[in-house]
């Protein structure tokens, strides 16, 4: 990683440090593939079911598999209880995660079938969508689904005038906070997911992309290590 600035963050990290990351592959017995990922206090389970028959049938695509994604925050994942069920934020997040993953998978190998990804946020402290996408990528690989590449995702942002990697909820609550989730492919750093909220200059954008790129590269190494951990020869 590049040179660290002196300004320490509430939890003692440098501006370009990730929170402690934990990744584990194959954590759920009944899914075809699964993963558990922690970014600090943000905890996510991802499961993959499929390729399987499509229900309802009218969603079937004769030329390729459909990749469906569900993002769900469990009721006690946040301070104020999250009411279970349909909400617009979850619908949008599931859409952008699904779109980030579709080019990774050889969908054309499985016409008329569905690949379902379920993402359960069990504890939330900012960065849930990027942790979820990082986990989803691992779960797809664990399911043995042929893929072109994997993606890693992390948020870059700004709080109290500093460009930061992997913001916590506390940092996201700063008055000038900007949050920018980014997902990149392992091999050539193609941006596959990008969102932003806040108020920033073009210069900030370029700096955040640099910080995010470093973070994604670090996560990519951990993802590979987590997969090798499950699939090693004794």
């Amino acid at each position: 990683m590049s040179e660290k600035k002196s300004g320490k963050r509430p939890d003692g990290r440098a501006y370009n440090d990730m929170r402690p990351v934990k990744m584990q592959v194959g954590v759920l017995k009944h899914a075809n593939g699964s993963a558990y990922v922690e970014f600090g206090k943000t905890h996510v389970y991802a499961s993959v079911h499929g390729p399987k028959k499509v229900h309802p049938r009218h969603m079937e695509d004769g030329e390729k598999a459909i990749l469906r994604c569900r993002y769900n925050m469990i009721p006690f994942s946040v301070n104020d209880r999250k009411r279970p069920g349909y909400d617009r934020r979850s619908v949008e997040i599931a859409k952008v995660i699904s779109e980030a993953l579709q080019p990774m998978v050889f969908l054309e190998e499985f016409p008329k079938s569905a690949i379902d990804i379920d993402l359960e946020i069990t504890q939330a402290d900012a960065g849930t969508r990027v942790a979820a996408l990082t986990a989803a990528s691992l779960a797809l690989a664990d399911a043995g689904i042929p893929m072109r590449d994997l993606v890693a995702a992390v948020a870059a942002g700004r709080a109290n005038g500093e460009i930061l990697l992997d913001l916590t909820k506390e940092e996201e609550d700063a008055k000038d906070a900007v949050d920018m989730p980014v997902a990149m492919t392992h091999r050539d750093n193609k941006v596959m997911l990008l969102q932003m909220d806040g108020d920033m200059s073009r210069e900030d954008l370029n700096q955040m992309l640099i910080v995010a790129k470093e973070g994604c590269a670090e996560l990519a190494k951990m993802q590979k290590a987590a997969l090798r951990e499950k699939y090693k020869v004794e």
Binding site: K95, V96, M192, L194, Q195, M196, M200, S201, L205
Partner: peptide, 9 residues
């Protein structure tokens, strides 16, 4: 000229 939101899709 400041950016206030980004969305890739």
């Amino acid at each position: 000229g400041n950016i206030t939101s980004i969305q890739m899709g």
